[in-house]
Design a protein around this nucleic acid. Structure first.
Length: 317
DNA sequence: AATCCGTGGTC
DNA sequence: TGACCAAGGAT
């Protein structure tokens, strides 16, 4: 969960997740739908699929591999996580190199080459940081202390060099460039895409949902029926032409959602209907409104659902 | 190697 | 408001 996600965002998910799946065996034997639903809202959903597969691999192996090489084979476990688990769980004297450690290292050695090209060099320098006897003897404490140094004192914008135990050895501080490091190459500009989503509710209080494709963005997650997401804005006439079925569709509003590599605007259309035809449901499934929270609804779709639902409620009253 | 993959907090 | 960033991994 902590891969690219802050402790604060993870904490409530972690508590709910470990309550729902208290053991590796429980997670391994769970339905994937339930795992995805427990992850919904956290993002990077391949992590949930990988973690589920990882639990199954660990059960098949009869336990956790206890060294970096063995861990590295598991789904979703890359160089960083293998080193972190080896050091923290199994006392192996290795240095997990995450974003914090990259930053500390870039400053300590005054590496001015920008990321991402400097990544390999930073990793090679970082793995020498635990050369001291004390660090070798306490791999878990050393790894976590390094994370904490990076997240608290050696922070991205305004490092507290005056409080840093490594200030005397820090080349970046000595040169007065610590706060500028690590340098980064400019990022590609984020394109905008447009689409529409449809929320229909029947007299029994059910709504129609769909399951997304197994690969790609929001893979295997739940969504409202909708149009393609394209570079060009849609007119209302165009949108109504591709609605999942004919109904008195009304515009509830527009949802904005920022993904890593594009910004999405979705026009949310709502309709109150008597009942869903078999034809309408063939593409998806019906869920009572109060059960939508139990489905694997990603945040962008949660926003659409809330916008549409509040519009339907207004029209009733 | 470069791209794809979410989301929420912060300044 | 917007750009940056977070206990990265897979392809």
């Amino acid at each position: 969960m902590l891969q690219q996600t802050t402790v604060k965002a993870v904490a409530p998910y972690y508590l709910r997740f470990t309550e729902k799946f208290p053991t590796v065996q429980a997670l391994a034997s769970a339905d994937r739908e339930d795992v995805l639903a427990a992850w919904a809202g956290l993002g990077y959903y391949s992590r949930a699929r990988n973690l589920h597969a990882c639990a199954q691999a660990v059960v098949a192996l009869g336990g956790f591999p206890q060294d970096v090489q063995g861990l590295r084979v598991l789904p979703g476990i890359g160089p960083y996580t293998a080193a972190a688990v080896a050091a923290i769980a199994f006392g192996v004297p290795v240095v997990p190199v995450d974003g914090n450690v990259e930053r500390v290292t870039a400053r300590l050695f005054a590496i001015t080459e920008p990321l991402p090209p400097a990544r390999k060099k930073l990793a090679q320098l970082a793995i020498t940081l635990n050369a001291d006897r004390e660090a070798q003897e306490r791999p878990s404490d050393f790894a976590q202390a390094l994370f904490d140094l990076g997240s608290s004192l050696c922070s991205p914008r305004a490092p507290a060099c005056g409080l840093c135990p490594w200030q005397g050895e820090c080349a970046g501080h000595k040169q007065g460039i610590a706060a500028e490091l690590p340098r980064k190459l400019p990022k590609a500009e984020r394109p905008v895409r447009y689409g529409a989503a449809f929320l229909a509710q029947d007299a029994a209080g059910q709504i129609l949902l769909r399951k997304r494709a197994e690969k790609g963005l929001l893979a295997a997650m739940t969504e409202l029926p909708g149009t393609e997401w394209r570079l060009e804005n849609w007119s209302e006439a165009e949108i109504l032409q591709v609605a999942p079925f004919a109904a008195g569709w009304k515009l509830a509003g527009r949802v904005k959602h920022v993904f890593t590599h594009f910004t999405l605007y979705l026009d949310v259309y709502v309709a109150q209907i008597k009942h869903f035809s078999n034809q309408a449901v063939s593409d998806g499934f019906l869920v009572p409104v109060e059960c939508v929270k139990d489905t694997a609804l990603p945040s962008v779709m949660q926003k659409c659902f809330e916008k549409g639902l509040s519009c339907l409620k207004e029209k009733k009253s």
